[in-house]
């Protein structure tokens, strides 16, 4: 500052290092996505077919819903590992309440709602246990994930109940404009999530709490309440994802969520939401989820094992967290 008389302008100067980091966080993932799209279009004959694009979007939809919910929790610097268990429970609650081959319930759309709310309830319990009892979130959600699988197993009773409600089944299998209805549902969820993030206390305070919890506390913000809300949002996302998967497969199944948690966390992280909290957002998760989906689809088309992808996703998580935490290293620091 050399200007005279002294004034502090709004001119915002950012160091080059910060700018590069910001760019990587912001535009980087989008560039990666575009490069991947271009690469697979040339590497595989079938990748850019309308049919495959429709498949891509369908694959994206459930992952996106899951990832969007998870984003709210990761923004706090917490984590939700219960998604697979929650999806299992919600799929069974949903199928058993809708028209099915096990009982006489025919609640239709209300059954779907019950499935989603099952997820919300799990989120509520996760949040309360985490916040009120002070248990680390990974531990609570690991345990609640097992409870979710357990409840699903009990409801399952050895044989998968079939979803016979044709209207609901059509949500998962039928297409509009050549695209699965699930895609439109996921898009709606994304829009709602963006609005929540941008225009509500839950959304804005999520950034504040994740960014600096002690300041949030000093400002008189009811941290516990908003943390619990965030977990409810995450649970709701998982619940909806479970219902969506059930409409797609036509059954309720304790293993319906298997293999979803990992890509979902990777999607959030890849999009640029920091695992330490405070930075990121649901639109970034869209980009991250798209990268994961394109990668999964494209690699299969060019003949790479699907299991290698899980391995790569794991590596991506580690690298992302190492990279984002690298500058925070100190000689004297407590690590947990």
């Amino acid at each position: 500052m050399t200007s005279s008389p002294p004034s502090l302008g709004a001119s915002v100067s950012v160091s080059p290092g910060v700018r590069i980091k910001r760019m990587l966080l912001g535009g980087g993932p989008l560039v990666v996505l575009l490069l991947l799209l271009i690469f697979f279009t040339f590497a595989s004959d079938t990748f850019a077919n309308p049919g495959n694009i429709s498949v891509l979007l369908t694959q994206l939809s459930i992952l996106l819903v899951l990832g969007v919910g998870l984003t709210f929790v990761i923004l706090l610097g917490s984590i939700d590992l219960s998604a697979e268990g929650v999806m299992a429970s919600s799929s069974l609650v949903f199928v058993l309440l809708a028209t099915n081959d096990r009982n006489d319930f025919q609640f239709g759309i209300l059954a779907a709602l019950a499935g989603v709310l099952t997820g919300s309830l799990f989120g509520l319990v996760n949040g309360i246990l985490h916040v009120r009892l002070g248990i680390p979130s990974f531990m609570v959600t690991l345990g609640m994930g097992a409870v979710g699988i357990g409840i699903a197993t009990v409801l399952f009773g050895g044989r998968a109940p079939q979803l016979l409600d044709q209207g609901l089944r059509s949500l998962g299998v039928d297409k509009v404009f050549g695209v699965s209805k699930l895609v439109f549902l996921a898009a709606l969820v994304l829009v709602i999530a963006v609005l929540i993030q941008r225009y509500t206390r839950v959304g804005r305070y999520g950034y504040v709490i994740g960014g600096d919890e002690p300041i949030a506390r000093l400002s008189g913000i009811n941290i516990k309440k908003y943390k619990i809300y965030s977990f409810v949002l995450s649970g709701t996302g998982s619940g909806l994802a479970g219902v969506m998967a059930a409409t797609q497969l036509g059954v309720g199944d304790p293993t319906i969520g298997l293999g979803f948690l990992f890509p979902a966390i990777t999607a959030v992280v890849l999009g640029g939401t920091l695992l330490i909290g405070g930075r990121g957002g649901v639109l970034r998760t869209l980009v991250g989820a798209a990268i994961i989906t394109v990668l999964a689809n494209g690699l299969i088309l060019i003949g790479v094992s699907i299991y290698i992808q899980t391995a790569v996703q794991g590596l991506v998580i580690v690298i992302a967290v190492v990279a984002s935490g690298w500058s925070l290293r100190r000689r004297v620091r407590v690590i947990k």
Partner: peptide, 24 residues
């Protein structure tokens, strides 16, 4: 809080009528 805007910081926890029913 560095992760949000100047306005949010200035009014943090005291948004008053800028937030009605939890909506900004």
């Amino acid at each position: 809080v560095t992760s949000v805007t100047v306005a949010e910081n200035i009014l943090l926890g005291a948004e008053g009528d800028a937030v009605v029913g939890g909506i900004y």
